[in-house]
Nucleic acid binder design. Structure first.
Lengths: 176, 176
DNA sequence: TAGAATTGCGCAATGG
DNA sequence: GCCATTGCGCAATTCT
């Protein structure tokens, strides 16, 4: 399935397959303006917020639900905070890397699930093969046993009554 | 795959495999708004923003970009819009229901994956059982055959005229 | 402590 | 219209 988008919307998708690390070459720039729409959205929001008269308040966002004490801690703009500042490059890069990792991880997960399904099929086939072999061996064994019974006297009496031919019936259920 | 798009949307997909230096074609425009994530991001932002104390005006979210015919079409607050109005009850209820469905679906999915893994184990055990049985049957057969060979003369020398029989030695190529 | 990998979660598009 | 799926990004956690 495809994806979808919206009317008139322009979409840009960047798949960076290889380098997970540095790759995002200059994503900074990209994201700067867009890339992930979120940034976009964010910027929009920010803009609006500012427009509302709010200054840089939106900087640190209290992401955590319950009441994360993390966000909006003291009030320093140290390196630490830059990581929480949604408008910072560091934040953006961090998100970008995580998004890649997430994609990678999910892909891996799907692959594994698929492999497992395949494994099931392999095992099923193997099972059928084994069952067939068992069937064959069982039959073979049965024939041999019958043969034995048929000529049992040859072994016990050392042969003679040749003409008798006892019952060839298979008295015992050699089969399992 | 990945992305998608919709009506009239313009889509740009850039695959940066490793050494490609694609240029962010006018990302500026691209990101107008959109894509899932973006929209997502936007909404999230709104929420969080609010949390931050910012009073946003989340009303109608500019989901579709400039030309979006769907969102923010004319300017009526008909039922149609209520669905897009992130602050509307209908929207909220819809989201709520979907979130439930998503959870349910994911749970189901996980359950299935787990069942598959279990299936693999069952099959493995079954396989071992079968292999063991084959081993046993094979051995049994081997013993019987040896026994036959050991007394082969009984069949060939001592016994014979018996109807037709003797020939039945070696029933078949024990092979599989 | 940093960064990658996972995981739970919500949103939106789409399938049925 | 509704529920089920699916891709996606965010953030919290866990793993390295």
């Amino acid at each position: 399935m495809p994806v979808t988008k919206m009317d008139g919307a322009q979409f840009l998708v960047v798949f960076s397959m290889c380098g997970f690390k540095e790759e995002p070459v200059q994503m900074s720039k990209v994201s700067q303006q867009n890339t992930t729409a979120e940034t976009n959205g964010v910027s929009v929001i920010f803009t609006q917020a500012n427009t509302s008269g709010l200054q840089q308040v939106p900087q640190l966002v209290p992401v955590s639900p319950g009441g994360g004490g993390k966000a909006t801690p003291p009030s320093k703009q140290g390196k630490k905070n830059s990581a929480l500042d949604r408008s910072s490059d560091e934040y953006r890069q961090r998100r970008e890397r995580n998004n890649m990792a997430v994609k990678k991880s999910r892909l891996k997960s799907k692959q594994k699930a698929q492999d497992t399904l395949q494994r099931v099929n392999q095992l099923k086939e193997e099972n059928e093969r084994l069952e067939a072999k068992i069937k064959l061996l069982t039959k073979e064994l049965s024939v041999l046993k019958d043969l034995f019974l048929e000529h049992a006297h040859n072994f016990t009496d050392n042969v003679q009554p040749v003409g008798t031919e006892s019952t060839s019936t298979n008295p015992d259920g050699a089969g399992q």
